[in-house]
Simulated assay, not measured.
Amino acid sequence: MSEEHAQALLQQMQSLESYLNDLLQREETVMRLLQEATNAVESMKVLTGNSEYETLVPVGLGVYVKAKINPDQKMIVNIGAGASVEQNKESAINYMESRIKELEMVLQQLASQRQEVSMKLEQGQHEMNKLIQSNRSSPQ
């Protein structure tokens, strides 16, 4: 095999490694969003009954204000593109649960892509090893 082929293979493997790193970062981001959405749903489900709940609301730079939450209070839900809507608790929970399902699907797709790229990288490494072996065994 030629040196040109080895160079092309090396460049392809570097591109695949870069793409794999990008996929890993995306997976991390989606997992954080998934955890945040799950926590939000759990927090909303806890708000029940007739009593108010006291909480701390961040106002910036480590400063908090005590606030009371009424369980029947409407919630403001970010629906994307800078838009938010006011919803009752059940609607907000349903919306967040649908977002969780979407995030889980995205996570599965990313995992599938990551696995595919990893297999291609492994094949490239195997081919590179064969090239190295053939160059060592051939007389100069």
Rank of each mutant, 00 (worst) to 15 (best):
V85G: 06
T48C: 08
M13K: 07
G60A: 07
N78R: 07
V46Y: 08
N50R: 10
E86I: 03
Y19T: 06
L47W: 06
K66H: 09
N78K: 12
V41S: 01
L103E: 09
N78M: 08
S15W: 10
K74F: 05
L61Y: 14
Q35F: 15
K101N: 04
M44E: 07
Q25G: 13
Q73G: 06
K66Y: 09
Q35D: 15
K68G: 01
T48S: 09
L56E: 14
Y95K: 06
E17D: 12
N70P: 00
L56Q: 13
S84C: 07
E102F: 12
A40Y: 13
E27A: 07
S98H: 02
N39L: 10
N88A: 01
L47E: 02
I79N: 05
E36C: 11
D72T: 06
A81Y: 13
K66R: 14
I100S: 03
I100R: 03
S84N: 07
L103I: 08
V57H: 00
R26S: 12
Y64W: 14
L56C: 07
V59H: 05
N21P: 09
L20D: 05
A40D: 15
A67K: 15
K89P: 06
A37L: 03
N70W: 01
L34C: 01
Y64D: 07
D22W: 14
V30A: 08
R32H: 07
S84Q: 07
S98D: 04
N50S: 13
S91C: 02
M13P: 04
R26T: 08
Q87K: 00
M31P: 00
L61G: 10
E28L: 13
I100A: 04
E17I: 06
V85A: 02
M96L: 08
V30G: 01
Y64I: 09
T55C: 09
L24C: 02
K101S: 11
N88T: 01
N94H: 06
L47I: 02
A67S: 15
I69T: 07
E27T: 06
N70D: 15
V63A: 09
S98A: 09
N94D: 10
M31Y: 13
E97T: 04
A40E: 15
K66P: 12
L61A: 12
